[in-house]
Computed example of a mutant assay.
Amino acid sequence: MRSIGNTYEEQACTALQREGLTVLDRNYHTRYGELDLVMLDRDIVVFVEVRFRGSQHGGSAAESITASKRKKLILAARYWLAAHPRHARLSCRFDVVSYDGPAEVSWLRAAFDAE
């Protein structure tokens, strides 16, 4: 299952780079979980969660990001910012790149807030 995730993370990273974002970090691990991609969109640090769902059982890929998962991503982002003070004063946002099956992709900018 991890190799499937890696494949979609790579696709998302490539697509976002084509849109002008720059990679700052990949697969950043904390005790709260992992940040799939950390990117820079001009002067905004973007924490990107990549989700894949092969079928619609249990909802879409984007719907799989529960309140609990959002909380963990926010905590992990805080750890990343603390470890990278050069970027800590920049604005941040949380994006989701979701794949519902291999062909249906969506990029949700500012998918949720840290508040």
Rank of each mutant, 00 (worst) to 15 (best):
R42C: 14
I44V: 15
V45E: 02
F47N: 02
E49K: 09
V50D: 08
V50C: 14
R51C: 11
S55N: 10
S55V: 03
G58V: 01
G58K: 00
G59F: 01
S60C: 03
A61R: 01
A62F: 11
E63Y: 02
E63H: 04
E63A: 11
S64T: 10
S64G: 12
I65H: 00
I65W: 00
T66L: 00
A67K: 10
S68L: 06
S68D: 09
K69M: 10
R70N: 01
K71V: 00
K72F: 00
K72C: 02
K72L: 04
L73M: 11
L73I: 07
L73N: 02
L75P: 01
A76N: 01
R78N: 09
R78P: 01
R78Y: 09
R78A: 10
R78L: 10
Y79S: 12
W80K: 10
L81H: 09
L81C: 12
L81Y: 06
A82N: 13
A82H: 13
A83N: 15
H84K: 12
H84Y: 11
P85H: 14
R86Q: 15
A88N: 13
A88T: 13
A88D: 14
R89K: 15
L90T: 09
S91I: 08
C92W: 07
C92P: 02
R93G: 07
R93V: 06
D95G: 07
D95P: 06
V96P: 03
V97R: 08
V97P: 09
V97D: 09
V97T: 09
S98K: 06
Y99H: 07
D100V: 04
D100M: 05
G101D: 03
G101Q: 02
P102R: 06
P102T: 03
P102H: 08
P102N: 07
A103S: 12
A103F: 12
E104I: 06
S106D: 11
W107R: 12
L108V: 11
A110D: 13
